[in-house]
Design a protein around this nucleic acid. Structure first.
Lengths: 126, 126
DNA sequence: TTCTTATGCATAAATTTCTTATGTATATTT
DNA sequence: AAATATACATAAGAAATTTATGCATAAGAA
């Protein structure tokens, strides 16, 4: 007489969105573009916005975002306005006029870069 | 009576192609794609090819290229074949079967990234 | 009520991926 | 004879991330 033992394994598989590695150099452009459209955003809001727009494909890490915001501010491209909501700190950023001009440049640059990469990568002539 | 003195300045303006900053992370994809098309290339040839295809907009530096080739080889994505032409060394690289698979992945990744960036950057809805 | 998750900021260390600088050597063009 | 092109290589430095922490409050779940 054999005892039948059944093991049930419940394995949770975590599907990582591959956290779609940011191509280094594009974060500033993303920030600037979002601020061009929304006029006023705070850091956490930016991370959520990017996640939402890209269906979770792109996750801006805080370790990248906050230093980037500080640098853009130091360069005079952004200005900050600190407020308190629900007893919690919030730092709203918006483009300065310099920031507006730089945004246009960055967007042009990115468009050119994409065009170049498409020529390199999509053509069979390469 | 005034003496009239005319100065003629000849100024050479060097138009830098802005050396179109490579978005960090795309070099490997470029290398792999070129080898997918050409089956066999050597380092110097790759730099010239990229320059030609992009009308000089993209210049792969040797300091970036050679280490990248070595790494791809170490990872088993490329294999090398050393020859001598005109008494000068040449190292031909080509894709391994793993390299072929990885090329497809990298190209897909890039295409997705470009799509994502276009959504983020081109839409007014962002 | 307590624990976890979400919100909101921040920084430091490590890593990746380039640029810049330098080096060697041969071939070709000026 | 000197400069440029071809062909490789590596090291130091810079830039832009990731990963790992940390602190604090609010909201939701157990």
């Amino acid at each position: 007489m054999h005892k039948k033992i059944m093991y049930i394994f419940v394995v949770q598989i975590e599907v990582l969105m591959s956290n779609s590695k940011l191509y280094k150099g594009s974060l500033n452009t993303i920030i600037l573009k979002l601020l061009q459209v929304h006029h006023k955003m705070y850091g956490y809001e930016i991370t959520q916005k990017v996640k939402a727009i890209t269906n979770g494909e792109l996750n801006i890490t805080e370790g990248a975002l906050y230093p980037a915001l500080h640098k853009l501010e130091a360069e005079g491209l952004l200005e900050v306005e600190v407020t308190k909501v629900d007893n919690r700190l919030r730092k709203y950023y918006k483009l300065t006029s310099m920031g507006n001009r730089e945004t246009v440049n960055k967007l042009t640059e990115l468009a050119e870069y994409i065009k170049t990469m498409q020529v390199l990568v999509n053509s069979k002539l390469a």
